[in-house]
Design a binder for these strands. Structure first.
Length: 795
DNA sequence: GAGTTTGAAACT
DNA sequence: CAGTTTCAAACTC
């Protein structure tokens, strides 16, 4: 083996010496495990590829695919699967079947992996989030019952109970009835279901029973939770996990296989949910079944849908949205696979365990969703019909709650979960219940896991054909999610609108390229040597799989290589936990006081580049500059030279952003503003002003700071201590830093802490909470005076 | 389309 | 951690 490696390495080096041009054919002549190898210190990709080829885990995953194809029918023939396939709330016979199946089993306690602490854990989630969930949930429910087309992601229970084919057809025929029927029958179904479940030995544990009861009967608390994104999938797992246990005991099947099977079922529920949502959203007649036409009525019913977006849609940019949605779905799968891996494969020792811990602790049910999504990779049934393929659950309507949650999540994820598992987490939460991409559907339909890029290309062409038949103009709700996703990947809606205008002004050649980019709505890479497994790859960096329209060579950023992708991703995240977070953060999202504190006068009001650019020659006037490309002004995080970033407009006043905290008195905000101003002052002022600022800090009563600190504590209290510490600006900028960045804040902050013993606690909290949620990877603060001067001169 | 420039990412 | 290399996008011709 070693000899073989040496030999191959020699050959590889010889090939490499030929120059970059050899990259295209690179993968054609060398074993896959060497595709990554260029240097001595890159064993991991090789190992990963090796593992991908040979490890039991990879074999198991690969086998899962084939088994899902080959053995799935056997599973489907089981009474349980038949029940699940045929379950209909309107059909009492099937319900009885359900009961009968359960009666015939003596259920043990479900395996841990399927324990469903979601409800309980949901209670443990951030109070801010939780309260919001309650409010939003009841609101959604109310609106649902009043037949407002205020679309809502049906919970799994609703899907399970209301959506199977026959019912769906009815709903498709008359979408109005969907809401009423579903919501009306739902509770009765629940109440009818639960006693049978409980009395039939369906009792894995008292706690679980309570959960089921709560869910089924819809206690006020859990009802709201049920409507939440997580709880939507809690119910299925609560049910399914127990059923799985039954099967597990009865058939002696492995938990893993069963879990996969159950996830398939969950995923199927997504498909069913899609059908329902399509009925709600898109169709008044069954002819629309095959394609979710954009419904302008529904669009107008979406309160949070911006007029800007409407205009673009009416301009015929629906296609863009559809492609955008595609990118989202890719991402969802990406993250789903990740969650699936950590949940099912028990890979809890990843270098990014913190990330996943955070994910799990914050919203374990996310993983439930993700697992269901991930299971899609191993499913071949749901894609059996073109309808299913076209029925992308990205078309899911977005409930008001969803909107709320998305925004809320944006805040929380940015502020209270400093280490992100990537934006996929955001997207999954934004467009939760989003099921499967059509391309994956189709890819899994007829093919096994593809190992070779050649196969993938061939496979991709199939996808194109499939997608061309199945991709439909998106529903309005899709656009909403897409918009959110675009924000996540660094392109806000307004920016996207600007892109549209810009597109019209480009030369034909660039317009073509740009149009291709925008039509995809997501990153399209052209990687040749990175295998799309490095951050060089825009797709990979954006946390999405590459698509067929990418021009990449030897791409491994495909669902087929999810194991590799996830491993690589973990490595990168271990190296830089923020690697997959959006580079551009919106102020509205990152409204943390730390961010407000971080901002300086060159940052525009809308967004900023999180890490800042390091431009030297482009003067931040070309798209080389990430800030410019994102159309945001350079900020204190930038280390650019001669910055002439034209987007560096006057920042939004602190108060304007602070006033978003409506729940807090204005005077507290003033105090916050004052405190922040005091902290910021040294960064923007001369030495004298810096001194005065310090004095101001000293004069700032701790009693004023305290409420502010308490105020900040709420959303950021779960910030890992390690990050808080790392955020502590103890490092001083190197002297060679072009803009002499980040000079002062440690003093001011430490002084702030020193001044008041009472303020020590609150002040400390304030300081800690005021730390950047994403610890700046660059020196903490700079004056940016040079940039300001340049900009002022230009202006 | 080929070649160059650029800056982020990766590596030493 | 600084310097270098690699990489792919952006840009120019």
């Amino acid at each position: 083996m070693n000899e073989k490696h040496v030999e191959e390495r020699k050959r590889e080096r010889a090939s490499t010496r030929k120059g970059r041009g050899s990259g295209v054919a690179y993968g054609a002549f060398f074993p896959l495990r060497w595709l990554f190898k260029k240097r001595g210190k890159q064993p991991l990709p090789i190992l990963l590829l090796d593992k991908m080829d040979r490890t039991p885990e990879a074999k198991r995953i690969a086998a899962a695919t084939s088994s899902s194809i080959s053995s799935s029918p056997a599973v489907q023939e089981s009474p349980f699967s038949n029940f699940l396939s045929n379950l209909s709330p309107l059909n009492t016979a099937t319900t009885a079947s359900y009961t009968q199946t359960l009666l015939g089993t003596n259920l043990p306690t479900p395996p841990v992996v399927f324990t469903s602490p979601h409800i309980n854990l949901q209670r443990e989630t951030s109070f801010l989030e939780r309260d919001d969930i309650v409010e939003a949930g009841s609101e959604v429910y109310k609106e649902c019952n009043t037949n407002i087309v205020q679309v809502q992601n049906p919970s799994f229970a609703e899907v399970q109970l209301c959506s199977p084919s026959g019912c769906v057809d009815e709903y498709l025929a008359d979408p109005v009835e969907v809401d009423s029927t579903c919501s009306a029958d739902l509770r009765s179904q629940r109440t009818n279901e639960v006693p049978r479940l409980l009395h039939s030995g369906f009792a894995p544990g008292k706690e679980s029973n309570t959960e089921v009861c709560d869910i089924m009967f819809g206690s006020p608390e859990n009802e709201a939770v049920l409507l939440s994104d997580q709880a939507e999938k809690d119910l299925p797992l609560s049910s399914l996990e127990m059923s799985q246990a039954a099967i597990n005991q009865r058939d002696g099947k492995k938990t893993e296989e069963l879990s996969r099977f159950i996830f398939e079922k969950v995923k199927e529920s997504d498909v069913n949910a899609c059908l329902v949502s399509r009925a709600q959203n898109c169709g008044e007649n069954a002819a629309k079944r095959a394609g979710c036409q954009y419904d302008e009525k529904n669009a107008s019913s979406q309160s949070r849908h911006s007029n800007e977006r409407k205009k673009r849609v009416q301009k015929g940019l629906v296609k863009e949205g559809g492609q955008n949605e595609r990118g989202i779905r890719r991402h969802l799968q990406f993250e789903a696979a990740k969650a699936y891996k950590f949940t099912i494969l028990g890979n809890s020792e990843s270098p990014c365990s913190l990330t996943h811990d955070a994910t799990n602790s914050r919203s374990p049910s996310i993983l439930t969703n993700l697992k269901s999504l991930a299971s899609s990779h191993f499913d071949n049934r749901a894609s059996s019909s073109p309808q299913d393929v076209s029925c992308d659950t990205s078309q899911f309507p977005s409930s008001p709650y969803e909107s709320f949650t998305s925004a809320q999540i944006g805040v929380n994820s940015t502020t209270s979960a400093p280490i992100h598992s990537g934006i996929g987490l955001h997207l999954n939460r934004i467009s939760r219940s989003t099921s499967l991409s059509s391309d994956i559907f189709s890819s899994k339909k007829s093919t096994r896991y593809l190992r070779m890029p050649e196969q993938m290309l061939e496979h991709g062409s199939n996808n194109i054909a499939t997608n061309s038949n199945t991709m439909k103009p998106p529903c309005h709700s899709m656009l909403v999610d897409q918009e959110a996703a675009l924000c996540e990947v660094g392109m806000s809606a307004s920016q996207e609108a600007d892109e549209v205008e810009e597109l019209n002004q480009l030369s034909p050649k660039r317009k073509r390229r740009k149009d291709a980019y925008m039509s995809e709505g997501c990153k399209r890479c052209n990687c040749r040597r990175s295998k799309c497994l490095k951050l060089y790859c825009e797709c990979f960096a954006a946390g999405v799989y590459c698509v067929d329209s990418c021009a990449c060579v030897n791409c491994y950023n495909k669902p087929e290589f999810e194991d590799t992708v996830l491993d690589i991703r973990q490595q990168i995240e271990a190296r830089n936990p923020l690697a997959f977070t959006p580079k551009v953060v919106d102020n509205a999202i990152d409204s943390s006081p730390n961010f407000m504190e971080e901002q300086d006068l060159t940052t525009p009001s809308s967004a900023r580049h999180k890490r800042g650019c390091n431009c030297k020659k482009s003067k931040c006037l070309k798209r080389y500059c990430e800030c410019f490309q994102a159309k945001v002004g350079c900020s204190s995080a930038c280390r650019c030279e001669g910055c002439k970033n034209t987007f560096g407009v006057t920042p939004e006043p602190v108060y304007d952003r602070a006033k978003r905290w409506e729940a807090h008195p204005a005077e507290k905000l003033d105090n916050v503003k004052g405190a922040i101003a005091c902290i910021k002052a040294p960064a923007f002022s001369s030495a004298s002003s810096s001194n005065s600022a310090k004095i101001s800090q000293a004069q700032l009563p701790s009693s004023q700071l305290q409420p502010s600190g308490a105020h900040y504590d709420i959303p950021y209290d779960d910030t890992p201590e390690i990050l808080k510490e790392t955020s502590n600006p103890t490092k001083v900028v190197k002297a060679s830093s072009p803009n002499q960045k980040r000079v002062s804040p440690p003093q001011s902050r430490s002084r702030l802490r020193e001044r008041s013993p009472t303020g020590l606690r609150s002040g400390r909290k304030f300081v800690l909470q005021a730390m950047p949620s994403f610890p700046p990877l660059t020196p903490h603060r700079n004056s940016k005076e040079g940039t300001n001067e340049i900009e002022n001169d230009d202006k």
